[in-house]
Amino acid sequence: MTDATLWTPPGMGDEDKISFLAFREGIPNAANELIRVWLLQALPANRSYSRPEYAQAAFLKFQSAMGQDFGFRRGNFDYYYDEEVIILLSRLDQTNLAYFIDYVLAHTKLSEFLYKHLESILLEARSSWKVGTQGDSRRLMVRVPAAVSEIVESITDKSGAASTLLRKAWNKAFGTDAEPGAAYSAAVKSVEVYTGEIFCPSNRIATLGTAIRDFQAKPSKWAFTLGSADSSNLDQLLGMMKLLWHNQNDRHGSTNYQDVSTEEAQAAVLLATTLVGWFDNGLVYRVEE
Results as ranks from 00 to 15, higher is better:
Ala178Gly: 09
Ala223Asn: 13
Ser137Lys: 14
Ala106Val: 04
Gly132Pro: 01
Ala265Trp: 00
Glu53Val: 07
Arg139Ile: 08
Arg126Tyr: 06
Ala30Glu: 15
Phe70Glu: 07
Val131Ser: 03
Thr5Phe: 05
Phe100Met: 07
Phe77Cys: 08
Gly253Ile: 12
Trp7Cys: 08
Asp78Lys: 14
Pro201Lys: 03
Asp280Gln: 07
Gly13Tyr: 05
Thr195Leu: 06
Ser90Gln: 10
Glu124Trp: 10
Pro219Cys: 01
Asp3Ile: 07
Tyr54Phe: 14
Gly239Phe: 04
Arg24Tyr: 03
Arg51Thr: 14
Lys168Phe: 03
Lys242Trp: 11
Glu53Arg: 13
Asp136Ile: 11
Asp235Arg: 02
Asn29Thr: 03
Thr273His: 02
Leu270Thr: 05
His117Val: 10
Thr273Asp: 06
Asp3Thr: 04
Phe23Leu: 10
Thr164Met: 12
Ala125Trp: 01
Met66Ser: 12
Arg73Gly: 13
Asp69Ser: 11
Gly175Lys: 03
Val142Ala: 12
Glu53His: 13
Asp157Ala: 15
Pro44Gly: 00
Val284Tyr: 05
Ile18Gln: 10
Asp102Glu: 07
Ile155Cys: 13
Ala146Thr: 08
Asp93Phe: 02
Phe72His: 05
Ala265His: 02
Trp129Val: 00
Leu88Tyr: 12
Ala229His: 14
Glu289Trp: 09
Asn203Gly: 07
Arg204Gly: 03
Leu234His: 02
Thr210Arg: 07
Asp259Pro: 12
Ala4Tyr: 11
